[in-house]
Amino acid sequence: MMMKKTVCMGLILCGMAFGTTAQTRGSLGQSDPKAKVVLDNVSKKFKSLKSVIANFVLKVEGANNSVSDSKKGSVYLKGAKYKVVMGDQEIISDNKTSWTYAKDVNEVTINNVDQSGNSMTPAKIFTNFYDKDFLYRLNGETTEKGKVLQNIELTPTDKSKTFFKVLVDVDKKNQTLARMKVFEKNGNRYTYEISSFTPNGAVTDDMFTFDAKKHPGVEVVDLR
């Protein structure tokens, strides 16, 4: 079944299902204003761009180091439209319809995009996903490969989530997301590392729709 094959791709899109069901902050504490400035700058920088092409590495670590895996992928963004490619799998959206394509079985699943704003998309990961659903604090700065990274720790306000902490590293000079690490309650850890970030990269609108004619014999599962 393609559903099993696309679990990893789902993680890319939702950053471990951050969701948008925030609780009242009053009883949970306050966020660090310094961290908010950093995150707001990342959001502002992303929104100023016409398009983005980013390559990433997803590293999966199981509890007690039981499993370790690494996969490379790419994401193409233009406003709310996106295309994520990783191995034989693609997720494409024109912000109205989404297509999840598995090349190895030549099958595509079609869904309507959730217009309620409750779903997590690649664009939201680069913008203000954090503002309503997390408390956050700046943990200082580190230097890696000549880059100064600002280290921010986020904790979800909804304690029923499957994860309890997210660490975000921001490239201080370029004001872009460099790394995100998600800690699940079951001990699993998922690290999304941006290996390259191309602002205003060459993308075209036809990249954000799935053309069945280019995939002869494709099996279509339409769930709209």
Rank of each mutant, 00 (worst) to 15 (best):
A35Y: 02
D222A: 05
G87F: 12
R25M: 10
V221N: 15
Q30E: 12
K181I: 02
T198G: 08
F134T: 14
I152F: 09
V168K: 06
E90A: 12
Y192S: 04
K71S: 13
V85L: 11
I53Q: 13
T6I: 13
Q175Y: 06
R179W: 04
T127D: 08
K214C: 04
V221A: 06
I91Q: 09
F164L: 05
V113K: 00
M1V: 12
M16I: 09
T100L: 07
K59C: 08
F46V: 12
S48Q: 05
K159G: 00
L149C: 02
G117V: 04
A54F: 05
Q150I: 07
L13F: 00
S27W: 08
S31H: 07
F183A: 00
D114Q: 05
D131R: 14
T204M: 01
K181C: 08
L28K: 05
N41D: 15
K103E: 08
V113Y: 01
V182R: 01
W99H: 03
E193Q: 09
K81D: 15
G62L: 04
Q30H: 09
L11M: 15
G26E: 06
L77V: 10
K72T: 15
G217I: 06
F208I: 10
L13W: 00
N55T: 11
K124Q: 11
G117M: 04
Y76H: 11
F208K: 04
K83H: 14
E219A: 15
D169K: 12
Y130N: 09
G117I: 00
L149N: 07
S195N: 11
P156I: 01
G201L: 03
E90M: 14
G201H: 06
T176S: 10
K34F: 02
K47S: 13
K5E: 05
N41G: 14
D222I: 06
G29N: 01
S119G: 13
D131T: 15
I125M: 15
A80Y: 09
I125W: 00
T162G: 12
T204D: 09
E219C: 07
A54G: 07
F126P: 02
N174E: 14
M9V: 12
L39Y: 11
T20M: 10
G201W: 00
E219I: 13
A80I: 09
